[in-house]
Design a binder for these strands. Structure first.
Lengths: 310, 310
DNA sequence: ACCCGTCGACAAGCCGGGCTTGTCGGTCGA
DNA sequence: TCGACCGACAAGCCCGGCTTGTCGACGGGT
């Protein structure tokens, strides 16, 4: 037989009151029950914990040591329960956020700072991924939440827009459009777009394609572009692209951003998570997103009803 | 209802095997019992710990946190049991030793060193007392063991001789006997004895009186002597006394020890403890005393059968 | 000195909770 | 589509913890 917390609770009660009878009142059982349980506890431990000298109960040295341990144990058990509840409430724990490059310039750091302020005991682990890996990362439980440009997801994956960003034109410093105060999208009709492959960044890809189509043309793509290589191509003057306006915060050398004529195209950055067993901090995160968006004046998308957290 | 360690054991089993069925084999109950108990645990916590998706069992974030806590708790509970047993065996814990001045010159430090070697995890707290307080200290549980010159004790107090020490004559450096190679006890007949009051040091008092009586005289006492004041009196030439030979290790300034003619009188240093609820380390201590006495060649007393540890 | 009050242990029976057996629904692989 | 496997549900059993009743022991009060 193994010791149980109930027996420890009884033992602590008896030891602290130095009396079976009075301790019995504390724990709402008869005195005999305490005698039985503490005897059982002593038997399982193989150690006498209390010296009963009728009229007085004294702790043995072993009992004194065990009493201290029991108190610690009971406190730790209670703490463990509270901690589990806090984790389930999303107040503490670790939220693993996967993000795409689009989020890194402004959205992610601001979100993390805001979250750290609102939920100081929630640890956040971040990891950069390609948007094309979002589903796999979530399904394999390799992350709890992703930030990526809006795209379609199969059932089982939920999403909600965090913010809508304006798209701007990224050109090399030496490009003829670099000095223009504003550009109309059709002016890029003949340009070669340094766009990532669709399977790496579907949301971003679709946003750019859709923008161009809205302007009445299909962009010609530089098939050699992939990954961060695209930025270098633009800086080197080998092409252009549409990028989120917040890239201005970390604009690569040799590249210039030019605003598009209003009303310009945009790109929606989504929070994405498992629908079935979302991390308990996901609702907190979404709430934080909404707060921050209002605070910063980030425009929301018109489609914001599309998904709701559990 | 409160969580119990049994439920935690079940939960750990299920979480580690990721299966109710297989965990059931580990803990020797039916799968249904695990379902019931873990459901009960979740209900008492108010937290879902496991996601059951038939075919697979997954931990929720709260479950993962609680699992870690449960493992710690179970390990701590086991450790507490082992610790209590070790304390009961006298291998670890704290032994509070009260000692009289007689033991401090040689016996106590050697005993402590020996004990530290044999029982490195047993902490020893020492405290100097007057022999007259030994009973009260033990009865009030203000110490677990005392070292004091042999004297009689009421029932409820046991004692055993640690060693027998030779008595020597302590005189001031300027005393006529200071230069004598050996002294016969009767030579002290006219001297004033700087003896502590009997209620402060009964064993020592009786030993000196008995020695003098054995030599055929009753010592004349300096009624002003008490406490460490006696040493000063001797050093100042205001009297003499019989002292244990080991005082030579820490001989006060201005005082000389002169051996007594063989076979000289002795003083037995006793270990003294509660008979009813002795500290579990007392037997270990007595064993250590016996070992050390043999090692050092300390003579034992002829009366060593008088008391036995429980 | 006696008696009564109090305390913890022992004994026996009850009763609830934990365990078992039996079964079902759901999911995945063949 | 079927079978295998898994966890949940249901019902009954049965052990273990609790209760009631009692005793012996110690102390204090009168």
């Amino acid at each position: 037989m193994e010791p149980e917390l109930r027996q420890m609770r009884y033992f602590v009660a008896v030891a602290e009151r130095r009396s079976f009878t009075r301790a019995a009142e504390d724990v709402y059982v008869a005195q005999q029950a305490l005698s039985q349980q503490i005897k059982a506890l002593e038997d399982t431990l193989g150690v006498r914990l209390l010296e009963r000298t009728s009229r007085r109960v004294e702790l043995t040295p072993a009992g004194a040591a065990y009493l201290a341990d029991c108190k610690r144990l009971l406190a730790a058990a209670a703490r463990a329960g509270r901690h589990a509840r806090a984790v389930a409430a999303g107040e503490v724990g670790t939220l693993r956020i996967a993000y795409t490059l689009t989020a890194v310039y402004e959205t992610l750091p601001e979100l993390i700072a805001h979250l750290a302020e609102r939920l100081p005991k929630l640890k956040v682990e971040t990891r950069e991924i390609f948007a094309g890996d979002v589903c796999r990362m979530l399904r394999d439980d390799r992350c709890d939440l992703a930030l990526a440009p809006r795209t379609g997801y199969p059932t089982g994956i939920d999403r909600r827009t965090v913010r809508r960003e304006e798209l701007r034109v990224a050109v090399g410093d030496g490009h003829p459009l670099a000095a223009a105060p504003v550009v109309d999208l059709v002016q890029l009709k003949g340009e070669k777009f340094q766009l990532w492959p669709r399977d790496m960044a579907p949301g971003y890809y679709d946003a750019v394609i859709a923008a161009c189509r809205g302007a009445g043309f299909a962009p010609s793509l530089d098939e050699t572009a992939s990954g961060s290589n695209a930025w270098a191509g633009i800086a080197a003057g080998r092409g252009v692209n549409l990028v989120v306006a917040s890239l201005a915060h970390q604009l690569p050398r040799g590249m210039t951003l030019v605003p598009l004529a209003e009303p310009g195209p945009g790109l929606c950055l989504d929070a994405v998570w498992r629908a079935e067993h979302p991390h308990p901090a996901v609702p907190r995160f979404l709430k934080g997103c909404a707060e921050l968006a209002r605070l910063r004046g980030w425009p929301a998308d018109d489609e914001q009803l599309s998904a709701r957290p559990a």
